[in-house]
Amino acid sequence: MEIRVLDNNKEQGKLSFILKDSNPIFANTLRRLMIDEVPTMAIDEVEFSKNNSILYDEMIAHRLGLIPLKTDLKSYNLPEKCKCEGKGCNRCQLKLVLRATKGSGVVYASELKSKDPAVKPVFAEMPIVKLLKGQTLELEATAVLGKGKQHMKWSPCHAYYKYRPIIEITGDVKNPEAIIEVDHNNIFEIKDRKLVVNKDRVLECDLSLDYSQIDKNVKVTASDTDFVFYIESFGQLSGKEIINKAMDIFDEQLDELAEELKKAK
């Protein structure tokens, strides 16, 4: 197995790579581990002391929960794995306070004051609610680590993959224009009246078109062993952190399985 990074855009949190000599089982395991098992911080409980804004408490609490928080996996534990046994301590939960008493205007995510400077909303300009004159919002929120399988707000990324496209032109193509016309991914070009593959865009092919119906010499097939993987981080963790954590969890789960099998004997 080999991994070749195609693009690592840290600003947008996008990471793509080719997974070589693997199989669909492993690719899907990796995808599901990243979406469901990699923990992140999110607001889970909100205590309102004052809210006469137009949005109900429940709606604001829901919006707060969905706000991505920058996560520091080293200094927090999952509540069920913490030493305090889920009662709540500094190692497994974090308090955030929001006080918006100004005359009017939009309350932004940046106004959520966190007790830990490392954990704060990723996007400062997210509007939480809009207040009119005389309306106030005061609340205390509790953020905890959680997993995407319990609620999507704890999921760190959007991850997807496809089989690596293999495009071949095996002979003379009689009508290159007909191919170009249906090719919405811009994979093909015409050079000297001949159809050629634009090598930079081969991976953009979405494998949805059967070009062989137009011309038998144009073959688009999918590799059985290679995958093009895309990870779009929601901001809590970087792409690299997500993959590393996913692999750590995979290791743990395999160890756990081996333990259980030993017991079964």
Partner: peptide
């Protein structure tokens, strides 16, 4: 008010 995240894919969009 604009949703915090996209309804379908979960990408944060409110900002």
């Amino acid at each position: 008010i604009i949703p915090i995240r996209c309804f379908s894919c979960g990408k944060p969009i409110a900002h």
